[in-house]
């Protein structure tokens, strides 16, 4: 028997209270219980990173967490990035650098990039690729993704420092 749990979470600044089964994956909770379909599901085994979200500001794969584990925590999904009618700087950078094709992997990459900026690290090339290794893309060959993230980090962290 699957147990049931009442959980309270803050997602993209909004508070939610829901009943979930113990076995409910966090990614399915976001998609099916909250209707936030921007977080994608690829492999369900922690490999592809399509389900990447921020949990209290840190990137995690939401297919490897159970929804009740998020009780009392704060989450950010891709829906939390853009302002009203305005792209988030990371989204702007991906558009400028042509950092996406089909877009399936994109929400995960965007959140990985935002977490890097929040840590205040400007990385490029090989060391940036190592930080993004938890996100897979089947379309782009990564070159433009890496360029987009480099551009975003330089702008955001660079200007914050300067």
């Amino acid at each position: 028997m699957s147990s049931r749990h009442r959980i309270r979470v803050t997602v993209n600044g909004r508070a939610y209270e829901r009943d979930v089964q113990g076995r409910r994956l966090l990614v399915d909770f976001l998609r099916h219980d909250l209707g936030l379909y921007g977080t994608h599901v690829g492999c369900e085994q922690g490999v592809c990173g399509a389900c990447t979200v921020l949990l209290d500001g840190q990137v995690v794969k939401s297919c490897l967490m159970l929804a009740p584990q998020a009780d009392g925590r704060t989450l950010t999904t891709v829906e939390g990035l853009a302002g009203r009618g305005e792209l988030h700087p990371v989204q702007e950078a991906f558009r400028e650098a042509h950092g996406l094709q089909c877009g399936y992997c994109t929400p995960g990459f965007l959140l990985s990039a935002v977490a890097l900026a929040d840590r205040g690290v400007v990385l490029e090339g090989k060391s940036l690729r190592a930080e993004l290794a938890g996100n897979l893309c089947r379309c782009t060959g990564y070159q433009n993704i890496v360029e987009a993230v480099e551009r975003y980090l330089r702008q955001t962290v660079g200007s914050r420092r300067g």
């Binding site: 028997m1 699957s2 147990s3 749990h5 113990g22 994956l25 399915d28 369900e44 159970l66």
Partner: peptide
């Protein structure tokens, strides 16, 4: 796939 049913317990 999704997990089979289980009881979730916090310790």
């Amino acid at each position: 796939m999704k997990p089979a049913p289980f009881e979730y317990v916090t310790a």
